[in-house]
Amino acid sequence: MDKNVEFLEYIYQNTQMGLDTISQLLDIAEDESFKQLLEDQYKEYKVIFDAAEEKLKQHNTEGKDISPYKKVSAYIMINVKTLTDKTAAHIAEMLIQGSIMGVIDIIKNLKKYTDVKEDISLLGRQLLKTEESNVEQCKRFL
């Protein structure tokens, strides 16, 4: 498979997971200012997701959805972890942990895909900045 398409698939699926997770957390979170943060983060992921989807179309392919197993596993894990604690601090901690894993993952992929087109590399770096920013934004709710 073309390295450009591979990296775009990664960005597409990564942001899709972010969108799914935040959608679920918006239904769980109770703090209004934290919900606003989640909505802002959702919009950031959506911009990157849409751009990855458009670039995939330019390469005559469609984004592959996250596997149903990963989706269900994430859904269950979020429900279990928030069953007894729906506070903004607890959810922020969960998001920080997820975003830090995302930072590590995107850095590895940026190094793996150094030879992709510049616009695709820029999209990957935008995702990295978004993940790093998400960590910083969530810290105030701890």
Rank of each mutant, 00 (worst) to 15 (best):
L122T: 03
T87A: 04
R140I: 05
S23W: 12
K81V: 03
G124P: 03
F49Y: 09
K64H: 13
D119L: 00
S121A: 02
A52R: 01
D85A: 09
Y75V: 06
V72Y: 05
E9H: 14
D119V: 02
E131K: 14
M17W: 14
T114I: 13
P68Y: 05
M94G: 13
C138A: 08
I120C: 00
C138G: 02
I106H: 00
I100N: 04
L142T: 01
V116A: 01
I104S: 05
L110D: 05
Q97K: 15
E53S: 15
Y12M: 05
G102I: 03
Q36N: 12
K71E: 07
I120H: 00
E39W: 03
Y69W: 13
L37F: 08
K117G: 02
A88P: 03
L56V: 04
I28T: 04
N79F: 10
F7H: 04
D105G: 03
A51G: 02
D31S: 10
M77D: 12
T82R: 03
T84N: 13
Q41P: 06
G18S: 13
S133A: 14
T15A: 10
Q13T: 13
L142D: 00
Q126H: 13
Q137L: 11
S23H: 15
D31W: 04
K117P: 02
N109E: 11
K108S: 10
Q36V: 14
G18F: 12
F141R: 02
M1E: 07
Q58I: 05
A92C: 09
T130I: 12
L127Y: 06
A74E: 07
A51K: 08
I91H: 00
L8Y: 07
T61I: 11
I76Q: 11
F34E: 06
A52T: 04
Y42G: 08
A89L: 01
D119I: 02
Y113V: 13
Y10W: 09
Y10V: 03
Y113T: 11
A89M: 01
R125T: 13
S23G: 15
D85W: 09
I106S: 02
K86I: 09
H59D: 04
V80K: 10
T130W: 10
E53D: 15
G98L: 09
L19S: 09
Q36R: 11
E93Y: 12
T114D: 07
T21P: 10
K43C: 05
K35V: 10
E118L: 11
K3A: 08
A88T: 04
I120L: 00
H59Q: 06
Y75N: 14
V135A: 08
E9F: 10
E32W: 01
V103T: 04
A51L: 06
L142H: 01
S33L: 12
N79T: 07
N4F: 00
